[in-house]
Simulated assay, not measured.
Amino acid sequence: MFKAVPHLHTAATATLLQQRIVAIFRGYTGEAADEAAAALIRGGVTLLEVTMNTDGAAAIVSRWRERFGEQVFIGAGTVIDEETAREALDSGAQFLITPNLDEKVIELAQSRGIDVWTGVLTPTEMVRAWKAGAPVLKLFPLGSLGSEYIREVRGPLGHIPLMATGGIDLHNVQQYWMAGASAFGLGSKLVRGDLIRAAAWQELEDHASKWVDTVRHLG
């Protein structure tokens, strides 16, 4: 077996592997985004990702760091290159998530003491990302492949924690867990646009609580 470079395994990564959920915020801004984030936090979600292709993403990350303090970890997603990574880190992001493998992004983040959960799909990308120091790999896109793909790649690569992203809902999350997923990146199935548009914050909080409880009792 190859020897990987040292992995930072920050508090954010430890929380991910314990709590198993990242809430993905894409395209939500202003008060609606703030209220939605607060509702999810009240529901027990502890990791929030703001995608960097959201208008004003860096400002949202900075604002949430200040508003929510030490309650949760605030990170940046859709970090596709060094420039985007630097903007996210300067805004105070506590973790980075990428849709792609870019070793320079991992190197930059590590120099700041921040973990990158790197987007990969193939076994070759998985090994490269792990060797580069990514402590968790985001398997993406997964929706069209399904849980069996996780089971297959974990045969030879079972030592690498995988975060399943795409196609996961409350009805099939157990299936993905049993296939070997260590965590889940959840967009619209958790951060529900219908509830945000309706300003149904209590309902969104209850929905988040259901997700948190479901994932906590996987096994």
Rank of each mutant, 00 (worst) to 15 (best):
I97K: 03
S147Y: 04
L142M: 11
I150Y: 00
R154L: 05
V127M: 11
L40V: 03
E83N: 06
I160R: 00
Y149F: 10
M163E: 06
A38H: 09
A93W: 06
R86Y: 07
T98E: 14
T124L: 13
L145H: 06
T78L: 08
I97D: 07
D81Y: 05
P141D: 06
R154N: 04
L108W: 14
L108T: 10
T46D: 00
T118A: 15
A129Y: 15
A58Q: 08
A59P: 06
S91C: 11
A39G: 02
A33W: 03
G43T: 00
P156E: 02
M52T: 08
R112Q: 12
W117Q: 11
L48P: 09
N100H: 15
L139F: 01
I80W: 08
L96I: 13
G92A: 09
P161H: 03
V72L: 01
P135D: 13
I114F: 07
A57Q: 08
R151L: 08
P135Q: 15
V127H: 03
E152W: 00
A129D: 13
D34R: 11
L142N: 05
M52F: 12
E35F: 04
L157V: 04
S111W: 03
T122L: 13
R154K: 11
M52D: 02
I106D: 15
P123G: 03
I41A: 01
R112E: 13
R112L: 15
A39C: 07
L157T: 02
V50P: 01
M163T: 09
E49S: 07
E103W: 12
T84P: 03
A37Q: 05
Q71K: 15
V45T: 09
E103Y: 06
I114G: 04
G75A: 09
G143W: 13
E107Q: 12
I97W: 05
A38M: 11
E152A: 13
F140W: 14
L157H: 00
D90R: 11
G77K: 06
R128S: 08
T46R: 10
Q110H: 12
P123I: 08
L162H: 00
L101E: 09
K138I: 13
L139C: 03
V136Q: 05
F73R: 01
E49K: 10
A76V: 12
I60P: 01
G77A: 11
R86H: 07
D90K: 09
T78M: 10
H159A: 12
L40A: 00
G158H: 03
L48W: 06
T54E: 02
G143T: 14
S147A: 15
W130K: 08
A109Q: 11
L157N: 00
P141C: 10
F68K: 02
S111M: 08
K138E: 10
N53H: 02
Q94C: 07
E107N: 09
L40C: 02
L40N: 00
L157F: 04
E148P: 07
I74F: 06
E49Y: 11
G146V: 08
A85T: 14
D115F: 07
F140R: 05
V136D: 09
V105G: 14
N100A: 10
Q110P: 04
R67D: 15
Q94Y: 05
